[in-house]
Design a protein around this nucleic acid. Structure first.
Lengths: 97, 97
DNA sequence: TGAACATATGAATAACTGTTCATATTTCAT
DNA sequence: ATGAAATATGAACAGTTATTCATATGTTCA
């Protein structure tokens, strides 16, 4: 295994996992697995309030898990990098056993 | 990537990540990376109340992330399987970039 | 059996977090 | 410019959760 993470890093790490520890955010990320989507599309897809999705997208954005692209009135979100997918898949391995 | 997880599984997955999303639990798991340890050892190591550690160990136990072995008065905890390490290391990859 | 030690548990509290409602901001089309 | 559409933001509320204190349970040893 890698170097032993010091305490401060473990706090950062906890913050990261906290972001994954909410089903709404997880469902949003899952929605973005294949393609980018606008806020409205995500809200409709998950059948939740636009406001709720927007709030949660901000959390994901703040934590650099999604990135943004504006196109006219719509704002398209997509996964920021491959870590997101891999972290989720790693968790799935544990859940699906 | 694997099959698309259905909604119910995403809820379970969120619950799993929730467990990782607390620094005390993460520090406990990190303490157990190399060796098993008793509750008292962990508490001393992290400089936290025995009661706090015990409560959090129960959460970890409930979620099958640690396992237990009794030896006299002491109870020794260790990581349950390799997923734990791998999930943490995967998260570290993202934090340490 | 009783004292001492290790761990677990329950109740209480304080802090945090997700959702909703209302409203603000931004952009486009007319 | 004005209205409509898409998204963001702020305040409030309800539900959740981590920690602490006090105490209970279980184990060993004399």
């Amino acid at each position: 295994m890698k170097n032993i993470p010091d305490m401060e890093i473990l706090f950062e790490l906890a913050d990261l996992f906290k972001v994954f520890g909410d089903s709404t955010r997880l469902r949003i990320m899952h929605t973005l697995f294949e393609d980018e989507h606008s806020v409205g599309e995500i809200a409709e897809n998950l059948n939740m309030e636009q406001s709720t999705i927007s709030h949660q997208l901000r959390v994901l954005r703040t934590n650099k898990l999604v990135k943004v692209r504006r196109e006219g009135k719509q704002i398209y979100y997509s996964l920021d990098d491959d870590h997101v997918k891999r972290i989720i898949e790693m968790g799935l391995d544990h859940v699906l056993e």
